[in-house]
Amino acid sequence: MTTVLIEELEPESADAGVAAHYGDPMREQRTLETAVGLVDRSHRDVIAVPGEERAGWLHTLTTQHLSGLRAGQGTEMLVLSPHGHVEHHALVAEDGTTAWLDTEPGAGAGLLRYLEMMRFFTRVEPRDATAEMAVLSLVGPEAAATAARMLGADLAEPRVREVPGPKFAAGSVPPEPTALYDVRLFEGGLARRVPLGVDLLVPRTGLDAVVARLAGVPKAGLWAYEAVRVARRIPRLGWETDHRTIPAEAGFVGPAVHLDKGCYRGQETVARVHHLGRPPRRLVLVHLDGVATDQPPVQGTPVTLDGRQVGFVGTAVRHHELGMIALAVVKRNVADDARLTVGESAAAIDAG
């Protein structure tokens, strides 16, 4: 099997260290969308938060309702700036002794610095666990069945609550995480059910053994994973965000923001924007015509309308069915039928 690493194709990519593909990225995409594939995401940073006060402490620092997080539960969370801009995003898995936070490659150090700064006298001991734990992902409609059959991890469907409308009644949002992801221990690691499949948090010392147990599952590279993520309109920190992104602009409110949990840093901005119902920008899926070039635009490429910039491209991919597509953040008042330009390509918003 040919393994092509991300850095061989994109030397400056933050995703260096894992496979871009294994020889046929389009076939790998089809596998992830129709069956199940194993994706190496071991470049993600991991932070461990043990300590008896971890749930309540994380609850006060983040956008998510975490005070009652129990063993066997996972979710998502954000850390915001005082002005409500997205600074950090992490997925959470609670095993009963430790809350495991996995985040984007290179983002863990900043998140850990913030957590350490906010410890004060709280009984928690956050640490960088990237050298201890690696993330693998089973992706596709057969992911949960595969985890149950091959790892003994029987996981319930993920549940993400609908975002309440503006001016919702106080107390109408249940006091629990807005996204609940089932978490199970298995021999060799931790499994967490998520919308794209099942994430596995595995000790690096036992990584080869877990991969060997999953030897019957075809491997898929990060290119295939990203194509599926983009088609599902799932945002990624640092790709669909910039220094002034607020949660409502990038699609983070549903899975990562509890709108009725009390004070946290940046909460005023979140509440004001939600109750007005008018975020300055919005996340959209765009189709690129690919006539002038068949190369996907790089992250940050301007989206223009009649010669003026109205947004930027986050992640752009070649999709096996949809062609060249991208997630973009554009001004709220850009119409769904606007004739946009991205680099050399004409672009159209997919309003579906």
Rank of each mutant, 00 (worst) to 15 (best):
A35R: 11
V46P: 03
L58K: 07
A55W: 11
A16P: 04
T63C: 05
Q64I: 12
L58M: 13
L58Q: 11
T63E: 08
V18S: 05
E12I: 03
A19Y: 00
Q73A: 12
V39H: 00
D40P: 00
Y22V: 04
T31Q: 07
D24Q: 08
R41M: 11
H21W: 11
L66A: 10
A20R: 11
L61E: 00
T60P: 02
R41T: 00
R54V: 09
L66R: 12
P25A: 10
S42V: 01
P25H: 10
G68N: 05
S42D: 02
T62L: 02
V49M: 07
V39I: 00
A20V: 09
L38E: 07
E52R: 14
E28W: 07
G17N: 04
S67W: 10
E53S: 09
P50F: 15
L58G: 08
G23A: 05
D40Y: 04
L38N: 05
S67P: 07
G17W: 08
T31D: 05
Y22C: 09
L38C: 09
D40V: 02
Q29V: 03
L32T: 08
R44A: 13
A14I: 15
E28N: 01
H43N: 15
G37H: 07
E52V: 14
L32W: 06
R27E: 13
R30D: 14
S42R: 06
R27K: 12
G51Y: 14
H65I: 05
M26A: 15
T62N: 01
E28V: 02
S42E: 01
Q64P: 04
G37N: 09
T62V: 03
S67A: 15
G56N: 15
G72R: 12
E53L: 04
T63D: 07
I47Y: 11
L58Y: 13
S42A: 14
L69R: 02
G51E: 12
E28L: 04
T63A: 03
A71K: 13
R41N: 06
A48G: 10
T34V: 06
V49Q: 08
L66Q: 10
A20Q: 09
Q73L: 06
G68L: 03
A35G: 05
R44S: 04
G37A: 12
W57S: 06
G56I: 14
R54N: 10
T62R: 03
D24V: 06
Q29R: 10
A19H: 01
Q29N: 00
R41P: 02
M26G: 10
Y22T: 00
A20M: 11
A35V: 12
V49G: 08
S67F: 10
G72P: 12
A16M: 05
S67R: 15
V39D: 02
H21E: 00
V18T: 09
T60D: 10
Q64N: 14
G74P: 01
Q73T: 07
V39Y: 00
Y22M: 05
G56H: 15
H65G: 06
T31P: 04
I47W: 09
L61C: 02
M26I: 08
L32I: 06
A71Q: 14
E12V: 01
